[in-house]
Amino acid sequence: MTDNLDDNILVLNNVTKRFGGLVAVDDVSLSIKRGEIFALIGPNGAGKTTLFNNVTGLFKPTSGHVILNGKDITGSKPHEVARLGIARTFQNIRLFDYMTCLDNVRVGRHVRMHSKLWDGLFKLPAERREEARVTEEAMELLRFVGIARQAHQYARNLPYGQQRRLEIARALATEPKLLLLDEPAAGFTPQEKVELMALVRKILDRGVTVWLIEHDMKVVMGISERIVVLDHGEKIAEGPPEEVRTDPRVIEAYLGKSA
């Protein structure tokens, strides 16, 4: 690899994922620079979500390597990946429905907390302090994504758009260095999309690198510096938005689809 390790937060080397005969991700290599907004696009079923799942430990790659900050994390368990600094949202929103928004975000803080069984069982002073601090931090995150007023509602009672924001707040609570967003603007109105783009930039300002999957080219063009295009599991293009948009292979992949 010619890339300088220090620049790249995440490097994928020849990642392949097979499901039986289906090659969902086919020999994909890419690298994401610290502090950039990196986009992954591709037609339905191209393998984008599967690639995320391979990075976050939900799947173990059939072959290839996932390298975070120079450390090989291939095949780590999801909770280990989260601890190492990768957080994610899900394409089909996976919130803790019957928990309040505040609790959803506090669950996100779990991995950065220290209370053990005994601390919680006897409500020792250190645990109380930690709970108070975590509540404070969780409220700050809810404010950051703009749903602090809903703090005490059950997640399932939020409108769709706010659920997406809550999922982002929950992911940010794990203090990620890299945040993976799986179609965060799906089903949004144009106005909501604009707000989301602003939110993503704010996230970048917190020092978090963002890697997002997005179908809407306007959103992609608006915020990302670099794009990788996946089709049938294969990487078919990579580069800045203007370049990728005019790449003949990309146009062909999207032919007949709204891009």
Partner: peptide, 9 residues
Amino acid sequence: VAAAAMGIN
């Protein structure tokens, strides 16, 4: 799944 992705073992 979401719990694991949030860092819960």
